[in-house]
Design a protein around this nucleic acid. Sequence first.
DNA 1: CTCTTTTTTGCAACTTTGTTGCAATAATGT
DNA 2: ACATTATTGCAACAAAGTTGCAAAAAAGAG
Lengths: 129, 129
Amino acid sequence: MTKQVRNTAAKSAVIEMLTVSKTALSHAEIYHQLQSTCDRVTVYRILDRLIEEGAAHRIALTDGTVKYALCEQCGEGQHHLHSHLHFNCLQCGGVSCLESEIPKVQLPRKFKLHDVSLVVNGICASCNV
Amino acid sequence: MTKQVRNTAAKSAVIEMLTVSKTALSHAEIYHQLQSTCDRVTVYRILDRLIEEGAAHRIALTDGTVKYALCEQCGEGQHHLHSHLHFNCLQCGGVSCLESEIPKVQLPRKFKLHDVSLVVNGICASCNV
DNA sequence: CTCTTTTTTGCAACTTTGTTGCAATAATGT
DNA sequence: ACATTATTGCAACAAAGTTGCAAAAAAGAG
Ligand SMILES: [Zn+2]
Ligand SMILES: [Zn+2]
Ligand SMILES: [Zn+2]
Ligand SMILES: [Zn+2]
Protein backbone atom coordinates (compact mmCIF):
# COMPACT_ATOMS: atom_id res chain seq x y z
CA MET A 1 0.00 0.00 0.00
CA THR A 2 1.46 3.31 -1.07
CA LYS A 3 2.01 5.98 1.52
CA GLN A 4 -0.70 8.56 1.80
CA VAL A 5 0.10 12.18 0.99
CA ARG A 6 -0.92 14.96 3.35
CA ASN A 7 -1.04 18.67 2.87
CA THR A 8 0.36 20.76 5.64
CA ALA A 9 0.89 24.45 6.14
CA ALA A 10 4.65 24.13 5.76
CA LYS A 11 4.38 22.09 2.61
CA SER A 12 1.89 24.48 1.05
CA ALA A 13 4.11 27.40 1.91
CA VAL A 14 7.03 25.78 0.12
CA ILE A 15 4.94 24.96 -2.92
CA GLU A 16 3.56 28.49 -2.99
CA MET A 17 7.06 29.87 -2.79
CA LEU A 18 8.29 27.72 -5.64
CA THR A 19 5.22 28.62 -7.66
CA VAL A 20 5.68 32.34 -7.26
CA SER A 21 9.45 32.33 -7.69
CA LYS A 22 10.75 32.96 -11.17
CA THR A 23 13.87 30.99 -10.36
CA ALA A 24 14.65 27.67 -8.76
CA LEU A 25 15.38 27.89 -5.05
CA SER A 26 17.89 26.20 -2.80
CA HIS A 27 17.08 24.69 0.56
CA ALA A 28 18.74 27.65 2.28
CA GLU A 29 16.77 30.20 0.27
CA ILE A 30 13.52 28.47 1.03
CA TYR A 31 14.30 28.09 4.69
CA HIS A 32 15.29 31.70 5.17
CA GLN A 33 12.29 32.98 3.31
CA LEU A 34 10.06 30.93 5.60
CA GLN A 35 11.37 33.05 8.46
CA SER A 36 11.53 30.19 10.93
CA THR A 37 7.87 29.31 10.61
CA CYS A 38 9.19 25.80 10.44
CA ASP A 39 12.30 23.82 11.18
CA ARG A 40 15.28 23.45 8.90
CA VAL A 41 14.89 19.69 8.95
CA THR A 42 11.26 19.99 7.95
CA VAL A 43 12.25 21.90 4.83
CA TYR A 44 14.65 19.10 3.90
CA ARG A 45 11.91 16.56 4.37
CA ILE A 46 9.31 18.54 2.45
CA LEU A 47 11.66 18.91 -0.47
CA ASP A 48 12.47 15.20 -0.42
CA ARG A 49 8.80 14.44 -0.35
CA LEU A 50 7.96 16.80 -3.19
CA ILE A 51 10.54 15.06 -5.31
CA GLU A 52 9.29 11.62 -4.38
CA GLU A 53 5.76 12.69 -5.23
CA GLY A 54 6.96 13.97 -8.57
CA ALA A 55 5.92 17.52 -7.77
CA ALA A 56 9.40 18.97 -7.90
CA HIS A 57 12.81 18.24 -9.28
CA ARG A 58 16.36 18.87 -8.30
CA ILE A 59 18.85 20.92 -10.28
CA ALA A 60 22.53 20.54 -9.48
CA LEU A 61 24.73 23.45 -10.47
CA THR A 62 28.35 23.17 -11.50
CA ASP A 63 29.55 24.26 -8.07
CA GLY A 64 27.48 21.59 -6.37
CA THR A 65 24.64 23.71 -5.05
CA VAL A 66 21.26 22.15 -5.48
CA LYS A 67 18.17 24.08 -6.44
CA TYR A 68 14.57 22.96 -6.52
CA ALA A 69 11.84 23.75 -9.00
CA LEU A 70 8.30 22.56 -9.46
CA CYS A 71 7.61 20.09 -12.22
CA GLU A 72 5.38 21.77 -14.74
CA GLN A 73 6.43 20.72 -18.18
CA CYS A 74 7.57 17.38 -16.90
CA GLY A 75 5.70 14.34 -18.18
CA GLU A 76 3.52 13.05 -15.38
CA GLY A 77 3.27 9.45 -14.31
CA GLN A 78 5.78 6.67 -14.91
CA HIS A 79 7.91 8.52 -17.40
CA HIS A 80 8.55 11.40 -15.11
CA LEU A 81 11.83 12.52 -16.65
CA HIS A 82 12.77 16.15 -16.54
CA SER A 83 13.81 16.29 -20.14
CA HIS A 84 14.05 20.03 -20.26
CA LEU A 85 17.19 22.04 -19.79
CA HIS A 86 18.19 24.46 -17.10
CA PHE A 87 19.81 27.82 -17.31
CA ASN A 88 22.11 29.25 -14.69
CA CYS A 89 22.87 32.93 -15.06
CA LEU A 90 26.45 33.68 -14.14
CA GLN A 91 25.53 37.27 -13.36
CA CYS A 92 22.36 37.22 -11.29
CA GLY A 93 22.78 33.64 -10.19
CA GLY A 94 19.22 32.80 -11.16
CA VAL A 95 18.39 29.28 -12.22
CA SER A 96 15.41 28.57 -14.40
CA CYS A 97 13.76 25.79 -16.33
CA LEU A 98 13.71 26.34 -20.07
CA GLU A 99 11.09 24.87 -22.36
CA SER A 100 13.74 23.73 -24.82
CA GLU A 101 14.05 19.98 -25.10
CA ILE A 102 17.35 18.32 -24.40
CA PRO A 103 18.94 17.21 -27.65
CA LYS A 104 19.50 13.49 -28.10
CA VAL A 105 22.87 12.35 -26.90
CA GLN A 106 24.98 9.61 -28.42
CA LEU A 107 26.33 7.06 -25.97
CA PRO A 108 29.01 4.43 -26.51
CA ARG A 109 27.96 0.85 -27.14
CA LYS A 110 26.36 -1.00 -24.22
CA PHE A 111 25.68 2.16 -22.24
CA LYS A 112 22.06 2.49 -21.23
CA LEU A 113 20.58 5.95 -20.83
CA HIS A 114 18.16 6.66 -18.04
CA ASP A 115 17.93 10.41 -17.84
CA VAL A 116 19.92 13.50 -18.67
CA SER A 117 20.71 16.55 -16.64
CA LEU A 118 21.73 19.57 -18.65
CA VAL A 119 22.63 22.95 -17.21
CA VAL A 120 23.60 25.83 -19.45
CA ASN A 121 25.69 28.50 -17.80
CA GLY A 122 25.57 31.94 -19.33
CA ILE A 123 23.87 35.32 -19.16
CA CYS A 124 20.10 35.45 -18.92
CA ALA A 125 17.84 37.77 -20.89
CA SER A 126 17.33 40.14 -17.97
CA CYS A 127 21.04 40.53 -17.38
CA ASN A 128 21.95 40.70 -21.05
CA VAL A 129 21.45 44.44 -21.62
CA MET B 1 52.58 38.87 -12.81
CA THR B 2 50.85 35.52 -12.73
CA LYS B 3 51.23 33.26 -9.75
CA GLN B 4 53.88 30.63 -10.04
CA VAL B 5 52.88 26.97 -9.98
CA ARG B 6 54.72 24.53 -7.76
CA ASN B 7 54.72 20.78 -7.68
CA THR B 8 54.42 19.19 -4.30
CA ALA B 9 54.15 15.65 -3.09
CA ALA B 10 50.52 16.05 -2.16
CA LYS B 11 49.59 17.60 -5.47
CA SER B 12 51.42 14.91 -7.41
CA ALA B 13 49.68 12.26 -5.39
CA VAL B 14 46.29 13.72 -6.25
CA ILE B 15 47.15 13.98 -9.93
CA GLU B 16 48.47 10.43 -9.95
CA MET B 17 45.31 9.24 -8.30
CA LEU B 18 43.11 10.99 -10.83
CA THR B 19 45.26 9.70 -13.66
CA VAL B 20 45.03 6.10 -12.55
CA SER B 21 41.37 6.18 -11.62
CA LYS B 22 38.93 5.12 -14.26
CA THR B 23 36.27 7.30 -12.70
CA ALA B 24 36.06 10.85 -11.46
CA LEU B 25 36.70 11.20 -7.75
CA SER B 26 35.13 13.29 -5.04
CA HIS B 27 37.07 15.23 -2.45
CA ALA B 28 36.16 12.65 0.17
CA GLU B 29 37.32 9.75 -1.98
CA ILE B 30 40.61 11.44 -2.70
CA TYR B 31 41.19 12.39 0.90
CA HIS B 32 40.49 8.94 2.24
CA GLN B 33 42.65 7.26 -0.34
CA LEU B 34 45.51 9.53 0.68
CA GLN B 35 45.30 7.91 4.11
CA SER B 36 46.02 11.13 5.99
CA THR B 37 49.30 11.78 4.27
CA CYS B 38 47.97 15.28 4.06
CA ASP B 39 45.32 17.49 5.54
CA ARG B 40 41.71 17.66 4.43
CA VAL B 41 42.05 21.36 3.75
CA THR B 42 45.07 20.76 1.57
CA VAL B 43 43.06 18.46 -0.65
CA TYR B 44 40.45 21.17 -1.07
CA ARG B 45 43.12 23.64 -2.00
CA ILE B 46 44.89 21.30 -4.39
CA LEU B 47 41.66 20.59 -6.19
CA ASP B 48 40.86 24.29 -6.42
CA ARG B 49 44.29 24.91 -7.77
CA LEU B 50 44.10 22.14 -10.34
CA ILE B 51 40.91 23.66 -11.64
CA GLU B 52 42.36 27.14 -11.73
CA GLU B 53 45.35 25.81 -13.62
CA GLY B 54 43.04 24.10 -16.08
CA ALA B 55 44.36 20.68 -15.19
CA ALA B 56 41.10 19.36 -13.83
CA HIS B 57 37.41 20.02 -13.99
CA ARG B 58 34.46 19.67 -11.72
CA ILE B 59 31.46 17.44 -12.37
CA ALA B 60 28.28 18.06 -10.38
CA LEU B 61 25.95 15.10 -10.09
CA THR B 62 22.21 15.33 -9.78
CA ASP B 63 22.34 14.80 -6.03
CA GLY B 64 24.79 17.64 -5.59
CA THR B 65 27.98 15.66 -5.06
CA VAL B 66 30.94 17.03 -6.90
CA LYS B 67 33.53 14.86 -8.61
CA TYR B 68 36.84 15.81 -10.12
CA ALA B 69 38.51 14.57 -13.27
CA LEU B 70 41.64 15.55 -15.13
CA CYS B 71 41.24 17.57 -18.28
CA GLU B 72 42.44 15.49 -21.15
CA GLN B 73 40.20 16.06 -24.11
CA CYS B 74 39.51 19.60 -22.99
CA GLY B 75 40.73 22.35 -25.30
CA GLU B 76 43.76 23.96 -23.70
CA GLY B 77 44.30 27.67 -23.31
CA GLN B 78 41.71 30.41 -23.42
CA HIS B 79 38.84 28.32 -24.64
CA HIS B 80 39.12 25.80 -21.88
CA LEU B 81 35.55 24.60 -21.96
CA HIS B 82 34.78 21.06 -21.01
CA SER B 83 32.52 20.45 -23.92
CA HIS B 84 32.34 16.73 -23.41
CA LEU B 85 29.63 14.93 -21.57
CA HIS B 86 29.71 12.94 -18.38
CA PHE B 87 28.19 9.65 -17.51
CA ASN B 88 27.01 8.68 -14.07
CA CYS B 89 26.27 5.00 -13.60
CA LEU B 90 23.26 4.50 -11.36
CA GLN B 91 24.48 1.03 -10.45
CA CYS B 92 28.19 1.28 -9.66
CA GLY B 93 28.10 5.00 -9.02
CA GLY B 94 31.06 5.58 -11.29
CA VAL B 95 31.37 8.89 -13.10
CA SER B 96 33.35 9.17 -16.28
CA CYS B 97 34.14 11.60 -19.06
CA LEU B 98 32.88 10.51 -22.45
CA GLU B 99 34.45 11.56 -25.70
CA SER B 100 31.08 12.45 -27.18
CA GLU B 101 30.61 16.14 -27.86
CA ILE B 102 27.75 17.96 -26.26
CA PRO B 103 25.07 18.64 -28.87
CA LYS B 104 24.27 22.27 -29.62
CA VAL B 105 21.51 23.65 -27.46
CA GLN B 106 18.91 26.15 -28.51
CA LEU B 107 18.46 29.09 -26.13
CA PRO B 108 15.67 31.67 -26.05
CA ARG B 109 16.32 35.10 -27.52
CA LYS B 110 18.80 37.33 -25.67
CA PHE B 111 20.25 34.46 -23.64
CA LYS B 112 24.00 34.21 -23.96
CA LEU B 113 25.64 30.81 -23.63
CA HIS B 114 28.91 30.43 -21.81
CA ASP B 115 29.31 26.75 -21.17
CA VAL B 116 27.24 23.64 -20.80
CA SER B 117 27.31 20.92 -18.20
CA LEU B 118 25.72 17.67 -19.24
CA VAL B 119 25.49 14.56 -17.12
CA VAL B 120 23.85 11.42 -18.42
CA ASN B 121 22.55 9.07 -15.77
CA GLY B 122 22.20 5.44 -16.72
CA ILE B 123 23.94 2.08 -16.69
CA CYS B 124 27.54 1.87 -17.79
CA ALA B 125 29.00 -0.78 -20.08
CA SER B 126 30.59 -2.73 -17.22
CA CYS B 127 27.33 -2.92 -15.30
CA ASN B 128 25.19 -3.59 -18.34
CA VAL B 129 25.52 -7.38 -18.50
C1' DC C 1 -17.62 16.33 16.51
C1' DT C 2 -14.74 12.58 18.37
C1' DC C 3 -11.81 8.90 17.85
C1' DT C 4 -8.17 6.38 15.44
C1' DT C 5 -4.53 5.87 12.34
C1' DT C 6 -0.67 7.39 10.07
C1' DT C 7 1.96 11.21 8.42
C1' DT C 8 4.40 15.15 9.46
C1' DT C 9 6.87 18.17 12.50
C1' DG C 10 10.25 19.98 16.03
C1' DC C 11 14.03 19.30 18.61
C1' DA C 12 18.43 17.71 19.96
C1' DA C 13 22.39 15.66 18.77
C1' DC C 14 25.40 14.46 15.44
C1' DT C 15 28.22 13.83 10.96
C1' DT C 16 29.90 15.68 6.89
C1' DT C 17 31.39 19.26 4.07
C1' DG C 18 33.50 23.45 3.11
C1' DT C 19 36.00 27.98 4.67
C1' DT C 20 39.43 31.20 6.84
C1' DG C 21 43.62 33.06 9.19
C1' DC C 22 48.06 32.39 10.43
C1' DA C 23 52.46 30.54 11.34
C1' DA C 24 55.55 26.84 9.79
C1' DT C 25 57.32 24.40 5.91
C1' DA C 26 58.96 23.45 1.41
C1' DA C 27 59.63 24.42 -3.73
C1' DT C 28 61.82 27.09 -7.11
C1' DG C 29 65.28 30.26 -9.18
C1' DT C 30 69.71 32.54 -8.51
C1' DA D 1 73.13 28.16 0.30
C1' DC D 2 69.82 31.92 0.22
C1' DA D 3 65.78 34.54 -0.65
C1' DT D 4 61.24 34.57 -2.31
C1' DT D 5 56.81 33.10 -2.41
C1' DA D 6 53.63 29.12 -2.82
C1' DT D 7 51.92 25.53 -0.16
C1' DT D 8 50.75 23.09 3.96
C1' DG D 9 48.91 21.98 8.68
C1' DC D 10 46.33 23.26 12.33
C1' DA D 11 42.70 25.15 14.85
C1' DA D 12 38.57 27.11 14.83
C1' DC D 13 34.52 27.98 12.41
C1' DA D 14 30.31 27.98 9.50
C1' DA D 15 27.20 25.65 6.64
C1' DA D 16 24.90 21.64 5.04
C1' DG D 17 22.74 17.40 5.69
C1' DT D 18 21.16 13.18 8.69
C1' DT D 19 18.84 10.42 12.38
C1' DG D 20 15.83 9.02 16.26
C1' DC D 21 12.11 9.89 18.85
C1' DA D 22 8.21 11.93 21.03
C1' DA D 23 4.61 15.44 20.20
C1' DA D 24 1.44 17.49 17.00
C1' DA D 25 -1.56 17.54 13.12
C1' DA D 26 -4.05 15.65 8.85
C1' DA D 27 -7.31 12.59 6.88
C1' DG D 28 -10.88 9.30 7.18
C1' DA D 29 -14.54 6.78 9.64
C1' DG D 30 -18.21 6.54 12.71
ZN1 LIG E 1 20.79 36.94 -14.96
ZN1 LIG F 1 13.38 22.19 -14.49
ZN1 LIG G 1 28.36 1.01 -13.67
ZN1 LIG H 1 35.09 15.39 -18.02
